[in-house]
Each structure stands twice: as structure tokens, then as C-alpha cells.
């Protein structure tokens, strides 16, 4: 398929990830939506790597995966810590920035 197909798919997945961040209240599901967005961008990288004819895009995607893994680790640790004290995993709970 042409590169455009893959990148359009990537755009769709990305948008769905964004929607997930905006709509769901559970912190873990929001986090998973962020992972979805990262995956979508990885797909775009790899598609463009094939388009450009070199492997740089794939290398970048590889690094993105690594960083995403590290991010998931720390993020979930934070969520667990918050859950311990608050007993709730809703991201609407901490609203101290309210006017």
C-alpha cells in the first residue's frame, strides 16, 4: 500500500488516542490512550522510513518504544502511589487548581 494509507491509519489511531484521553476518567485508561498515541506515531515513523528508503525512521521508532516503556514504568508507579492515599484512580479527583 502506499505510504499515505499507513500514515492515514496512524492519524486515525492517534485521534482515537486523543479521544481516549479526553473522555475516560480512569487514570489507567487515560494512560493507555497515551500509549496508543505513541504507537500511532511509531507507525508513521516506520511508514516514512520505507518512503525515504533508509532506516533512520525505524531507529527513531525503536527509541520511542524504549522511552515509552520507561514512561509507563514511572507513570504507573505514580498512579499506584496516588491510589494508595486517595483510594481512587479517577483523574477528576485532584482538582485543587479550581478557581
Amino acid at each position: 500500500m502506499t505510504t499515505a494509507h499507513y500514515v492515514v491509519l496512524s492519524a486515525i489511531l492517534f485521534s482515537l488516542g486523543v479521544l481516549g484521553v479526553l473522555i475516560r476518567r480512569n487514570a489507567i485508561i487515560v494512560f493507555m490512550s497515551v500509549e496508543m498515541m505513541l504507537n500511532a506515531s511509531n507507525l508513521a515513523f516506520v511508514a516514512f522510513a520505507r518512503q525515504a528508503g533508509n532506516l533512520d525512521g525505524q531507529t527513531i521508532a525503536f527509541f520511542v518504544m524504549t522511552v515509552a516503556a520507561a514512561e509507563v514504568v514511572v507513570g504507573l508507579a505514580i498512579i499506584m502511589t496516588i491510589f494508595r492515599t486517595r483510594r481512587s484512580a479517577s483523574i477528576d479527583e485532584p482538582n485543587l487548581l479550581k478557581y
Binding site: V21, R25, D92, L97, Y99
Partner: peptide, 17 residues
């Protein structure tokens, strides 16, 4: 205008979008 600051991260994300 301060009523825009609802304290919810999701509404902030919406404005960012």
C-alpha cells in the same frame, strides 16, 4: 474568566486540543 479554571485536567486537555 477565572471560571474557566475548573481544576479538571481533562478540560484543560480539551482546550489544548
Amino acid at each position: 474568566m477565572r471560571r474557566l479554571q475548573t481544576g479538571f485536567a481533562r478540560s484543560y486537555a480539551l482546550t489544548m486540543l
